[in-house]
């Protein structure tokens, strides 16, 4: 068990390092740090441009490998470099992550929980009305891009607010400025969280219910559940302990991919609701030609995905005794 986890950890660390380097190289190749100096009136003197780019370490005239090494040595000292908008990339990411996590945590847990429950319930009652409704419903949701779900929720909330006569559900940004007192501020934040959380939960529940349904069906067709029933388990206990538990295992094999899917969904929804989270940071970095900010975001994402992948490995080992050997 420990050897398995140690091997996974070393492999993940290696992947994180390579992915970070590749992320920096891709950012340097795709983004143009000179773009924001062009077309200025009066023109920016070349010496100024050069010194600004040199200070940020993003001067295209420096060989790419030298830039990568300088960036990596900064990273080793705990710095992701400076952004073109001023300030440390690392500090900016730290602020934005707290914003993103607010949305991600509740929405993801809710979505995965509902998805797994719906998937199991559908598989147990295969081809009955509940299964049919949730299956067709998930097809429609999965065919809808997350931002469309978000905009439609906003449209519904606008109609609801109009009908009530005052803005009960607020959905622009994480909070409204000007609320006094702890209670008012908390309620305001909760009101702002409602729609993004709902949007993320709907999107994730749809895809997780599909996976979970397919995997539960696979398990139900084996003799595991029947064996447990024969040993005297009740139907519910046999399903939960020997059906669902086994059905969760294949899901953790694609953990890295799944984590990526959750992050992507969250990023799109966060952007649609104009939260100042990680998604917006990446988008503005690309628009500004901000190599350091973009590379920092990619590096952070890679580490996050792999760390959560390791957590999934732990869960996998806990669910599946064969892994622990």
């Amino acid at each position: 068990m420990l050897r398995f986890l140690a091997r996974r950890a070393v492999w993940s660390a290696a992947l994180a390092l390579v992915a970070t380097c590749l992320g920096y190289l891709v950012a340097s190749a795709a983004l143009d740090p000179l773009a924001r100096f062009r077309g200025r009136n009066p023109p920016v003197p070349d010496s100024t441009v050069q010194s600004v780019l040199d200070a940020a370490g993003t001067n295209p005239q420096t060989p790419i490998l030298a830039r990568l090494l300088a960036w990596l040595s900064g990273l080793a000292q705990g710095s992701l470099g400076t952004s073109v908008r001023g300030g440390e990339v690392g500090a900016e990411i730290a602020t934005r992550v707290t914003t993103s996590v607010q949305l991600l945590l509740v929405g993801a847990l809710l979505g995965v929980g509902i998805g797994v429950a719906v998937g199991v319930a559908g598989a147990v009652r295969q081809h009955r009305w509940f299964d049919r409704v949730t299956t067709q419903g998930s097809f429609v949701v999965l065919a809808t891009p997350p931002f469309v779900v978000a905009v439609l929720l906003m449209l519904a909330a606008t109609r609801f607010n109009d009908a009530v006569g005052r803005p009960v559900i607020r959905f622009t940004g994480p909070y409204t400025v000007g609320h006094e007192g702890w209670w008012a501020q908390t309620m305001d934040r909760a009101s702002h969280l409602l729609l993004p959380t709902l949007a993320l939960a709907i999107v994730l529940a749809a895809s997780f219910s599909r996976y979970q349904r397919a995997m539960t069906l696979d398990v139900l067709s084996t003799d595991l559940v029947r064996g447990a029933r024969a040993r005297g388990h009740t139907r519910r206990s046999a399903l939960l302990r020997h059906g669902v538990r086994v059905a969760l295992i294949p899901m953790s094999t694609y953990a890295v991919y799944t984590v990526g899917m959750v992050l992507t969904g969250a990023m799109v929804i966060e952007l649609t609701f104009s939260w100042h989270g990680m998604g917006e940071y990446l988008l503005t970095a690309v628009r500004d030609g901000d190599v350091n900010a973009a590379a920092g975001t990619v590096a952070f994402t890679a580490v996050l995905v792999l760390a959560l992948g390791l957590v999934a490995d732990l869960v996998h080992a806990w669910l599946d005794p064969r892994v622990r050997l």
């Binding site: 992947l15 992915a19 890295v256 990526g260 992507t264 990619v298 994402t301 995905v305 792999l306």
Partner: peptide, 8 residues
């Protein structure tokens, strides 16, 4: 797979 494809 480490970096979600939409990010890339």
């Amino acid at each position: 797979l480490v970096i979600p494809s939409l990010f890339l």
